[in-house]
Structures are given as C-alpha cells and as structure tokens.
Amino acid sequence: TTVHIGNVTYHFDNPEEAVKWAKEMAEKLGLRIEIHGDTIRVE
C-alpha cells in the first residue's frame, strides 16, 4: 500500500496501518485523503 503526500511516497506492508497513518497526517495538515485501491492520496 502506498501513501502519497505531495511529491513524497510512503510504502506500508499493512493497508490498515497505511489508512490510519494517512488519516492522522491529513488531520495534522488540514487535508483530506482519497483511497484508490491500494493507493492513498493526502491532498
């Protein structure tokens, strides 16, 4: 599972961890997340 924040990509072996981490980052940055299969974007 990959999480994209701007130009930076993070890789997670556990999809649930990826979603949890992306949600925390989105809250901190005042952004929202979009999930497309195994790709998560924070925008």
Rank of each mutant, 00 (worst) to 15 (best):
residue 30 G to W: 03
residue 18 A to T: 01
residue 40 I to K: 01
residue 25 M to L: 12
residue 17 E to G: 04
residue 30 G to V: 03
residue 41 R to P: 02
residue 9 T to W: 09
residue 40 I to G: 02
residue 18 A to H: 00
residue 11 H to Q: 07
residue 12 F to M: 01
residue 12 F to G: 00
residue 10 Y to L: 11
residue 2 T to F: 08
residue 3 V to S: 00
residue 2 T to Y: 08
residue 30 G to A: 04
residue 25 M to I: 13
residue 30 G to K: 06
residue 42 V to S: 03
residue 27 E to F: 06
residue 1 T to R: 06
residue 17 E to S: 08
residue 40 I to S: 02
residue 41 R to N: 07
residue 6 G to N: 11
residue 6 G to V: 04
residue 6 G to C: 07
residue 2 T to S: 08
residue 19 V to A: 08
residue 21 W to R: 01
residue 25 M to G: 00
residue 10 Y to K: 11
residue 1 T to N: 04
residue 1 T to D: 02
residue 24 E to I: 11
residue 27 E to S: 05
residue 4 H to T: 12
residue 14 N to E: 07
residue 24 E to A: 13
residue 32 R to G: 13
residue 24 E to D: 10
residue 3 V to K: 01
residue 29 L to W: 06
residue 3 V to Q: 00
residue 37 G to C: 07
residue 33 I to Q: 01
residue 19 V to Q: 08
residue 6 G to H: 10
residue 14 N to Q: 06
residue 33 I to R: 00
residue 19 V to F: 14
residue 32 R to Y: 11
residue 26 A to S: 06
residue 32 R to A: 14
residue 37 G to H: 05
residue 5 I to M: 08
residue 11 H to V: 09
residue 35 I to S: 03
residue 20 K to P: 01
residue 34 E to Q: 13
residue 13 D to S: 11
residue 27 E to I: 06
residue 7 N to L: 09
residue 2 T to G: 03
residue 40 I to V: 05
residue 43 E to G: 15
residue 35 I to K: 04
residue 5 I to N: 01
residue 21 W to P: 00
residue 21 W to Q: 01
residue 38 D to H: 12
residue 23 K to Q: 13
residue 9 T to R: 12
residue 21 W to D: 00
residue 26 A to F: 05
residue 29 L to K: 05
residue 6 G to E: 07
residue 8 V to C: 14
residue 24 E to V: 10
residue 32 R to F: 13
residue 41 R to C: 11
residue 7 N to W: 10
residue 29 L to N: 10
residue 21 W to Y: 06
residue 3 V to A: 01
residue 15 P to D: 06
residue 35 I to A: 04
residue 18 A to F: 04
residue 7 N to D: 11
residue 6 G to R: 06
residue 6 G to L: 12
residue 34 E to T: 15
residue 17 E to A: 12
residue 14 N to F: 06
residue 30 G to H: 10
residue 37 G to Q: 06
residue 29 L to S: 06
residue 16 E to I: 11
residue 4 H to K: 11
residue 35 I to N: 04
residue 30 G to I: 03
residue 5 I to E: 01
residue 25 M to C: 06
residue 41 R to F: 15
residue 6 G to T: 03
residue 10 Y to N: 03
residue 41 R to Y: 15
residue 25 M to V: 12
residue 3 V to C: 03
residue 38 D to L: 07
residue 17 E to D: 13
residue 3 V to L: 03
residue 1 T to H: 06
residue 40 I to H: 02
residue 11 H to F: 14
residue 6 G to P: 01
residue 20 K to R: 14
residue 4 H to E: 08
residue 25 M to F: 07
residue 27 E to N: 09
residue 1 T to W: 13
residue 13 D to Y: 07
residue 19 V to L: 15
residue 7 N to S: 11
residue 16 E to K: 09
residue 3 V to H: 01
residue 39 T to Y: 10
residue 7 N to T: 10
residue 21 W to T: 01
residue 42 V to A: 04
residue 39 T to G: 05
residue 2 T to W: 09
residue 21 W to V: 02
residue 16 E to Y: 11
residue 2 T to P: 03
residue 19 V to S: 05
residue 40 I to M: 03
residue 12 F to K: 00
residue 17 E to R: 05
residue 27 E to G: 05
residue 14 N to S: 12
residue 15 P to C: 11
residue 13 D to H: 08
residue 5 I to H: 04
residue 36 H to C: 10
residue 26 A to T: 03
residue 20 K to E: 09
residue 24 E to P: 01
residue 10 Y to M: 09
residue 25 M to D: 00
residue 22 A to Q: 00
residue 40 I to Y: 00
residue 42 V to H: 02
residue 20 K to H: 07
residue 40 I to N: 02
residue 43 E to A: 14
residue 41 R to L: 13
